[in-house]
Design a protein around this nucleic acid. Structure first.
Length: 271
DNA sequence: ACTTCGACCTGTTGGC
DNA sequence: TGCCAACAGGTCGAAG
């Protein structure tokens, strides 16, 4: 479900409801997410005020005076703001109750996500420490990506999906960005010229920004924190369009697997 | 140091 | 219509 635009949409949706609000209670219904939720979370969080809601890559960071809650939505997770009396469903694993009678509810059928409580400096957290730059920051530019790519044998698609290189480019937006840039996803990252990276970086930024602007991509059941769908799925040019005609040249789009992920591209437009 | 690939889960889809 | 294999937005960490 969530790539960077979906996580950003979630962040924007929950912020007004939780920022500067005091946690009254934490309900843990299921603790075995990707990593166990430690008792420290329900011991330390109640009584704390959420000072800020931030995003780093696909991680959400809720800061308090006592520590930071680090949340990842994995493949199928979501965070919703619900009313205090709203009954919990099968996959509603964590509720964070606030003084304003609202609940921040974590739902995740596959449980690939995580919810970790960290008391020390969050920027030094092992999951964050070696992440690459944010794709929408100015430091993520063609020179950066080009220099990182030298000597790399990975395909360009796998390369831009590597969070040590750049965060937040998941399978949907990797496919879309490469289509927009006219680059064949199988091409080796180390052999692509600087000029093509100029184009690619521009396309990655455009695709992600546009997806954020319309509230993310809804596939199956993604909705924002109010239950509203995202509208970027209407803009998808290649993802999920295997066997259909390329929007630019009508050639039938091809699907292959790269790094165990489905990869759709136009064999004519993408070289 | 690098790359590849299994593993973690449940729900949905598509082919027979 | 029903069954079951294959697949799904991620990414860590072991193995090679």
């Amino acid at each position: 479900m969530p790539e960077l635009p979906e996580v950003e949409t979630t962040k924007r949706g929950i912020s007004p409801h939780v920022k500067n609000q005091r946690v009254s209670k934490v309900i843990l219904r299921r603790k075995n997410l990707r990593w166990p939720i430690t008792p420290a979370l329900s011991e330390d969080l109640p009584g704390q005020v959420i000072d800020s809601v931030a995003r780093r890559g696909k991680y959400l960071l809720l800061a308090t005076g006592k520590g930071t809650l680090l949340i990842h939505l994995g493949m199928s997770g979501s965070l919703r703001i619900v009313d205090a009396k709203q009954a919990a469903g099968k996959h509603d694993h964590v509720d964070i109750l606030f003084g304003n009678q609202r609940i921040l509810r974590y739902t995740d059928p596959r449980r690939f996500g995580c919810m970790l409580w960290h008391k020390a400096d969050i920027s030094q957290h092992p999951l964050l420490i070696s992440l690459g730059p944010e794709p929408l920051d100015s430091e993520f530019d063609a020179n950066y990506l080009f220099s990182k790519s030298r000597g790399k044998s990975a395909t360009i698609k796998t390369f831009i999906m590597d969070s040590k290189i750049v965060v937040g480019v998941g399978n949907i937006y990797a496919n879309e960005s490469l289509f927009m840039a006219g680059i064949n996803p199988k091409r080796r990252a180390g052999k692509i010229a600087l000029a093509r990276y100029v184009k690619l970086v521009d396309c990655i930024k455009q695709v992600l920004q546009k997806a954020i602007d319309v509230g993310g991509t809804t596939l199956r059941d993604f909705t924002d924190s109010n239950g509203e769908p995202g509208y970027f799925s209407q803009s998808l040019q290649v993802y999920g369009r295997k066997g259909l005609a390329c929007v630019a040249c009508q050639t039938i789009l091809k699907e292959i697997r790269l790094g165990q992920r489905s990869t759709v591209y136009c064999p004519r437009c993408q070289r």
